[in-house]
Amino acid sequence: MNEIIPPLVNPEQSASAADSATWASLVERIRTDDPSGMEELYRVFSQGIRFYLCRQLGTQDLDDRVHDIFLIVTQSIRRGDLREPDRLMGYVRTVLRRQVASHIEQIVHSRNNHADLEMGLRLSDRHPDPERSAIQNENQTLAMRVLHSLKSRDREVLVRFYLKEQAPEDICRELDLSATQFRLIKSRAKTRFIELAKRRFSLRNLVPQP
């Protein structure tokens, strides 16, 4: 009779609810080649890994990259590289960051060694997505409407914060604002943006889907 293994983590629960002993159990199952361990690892981490890779590298070859990550993590666990099983999340994150850095280095290296245009590689070889571009332009238009609807001082606050990346405390000092006023300006602008977006199109289209 197959043992029924309870789910490791409810994806909607906070990560802090994960039991470190359960992480250890998962790592042990993977280490001993238990298929349920692989399935659990995939179920728990696949969406998060896809999210990270998509955000860093785009959607090209995403499935292959996710597969590579799982391969690396499981091989590492079987080799005994993961010394603290309850640090599995941190380990997966480290593997992700290294893979992203390695991918970019590879592309740059290929670019430098292939001056011939016919053989050149692109860092992100994605065909332009007209729908994504259209949604992005729509969102920019909405943001412009929000900025134009503000008083010049409030608009200056947001331009300095989002474009110039000026520190909040510097903005407050130079524009004579309290921290509360600063937070209110940001919060109202964001709320207004989301309201306009909901009115313009359904909220699920606010975020271009890969």
């Binding site: 900025l147 947001l158 989002y162």
Partner: peptide, 14 residues
């Protein structure tokens, strides 16, 4: 991400 990116582009345009 969408909001920040949109605000940045709009702020640059402003």
């Amino acid at each position: 991400d969408v909001y920040v990116n949109s605000m940045r582009r709009a702020a640059a345009q402003i």
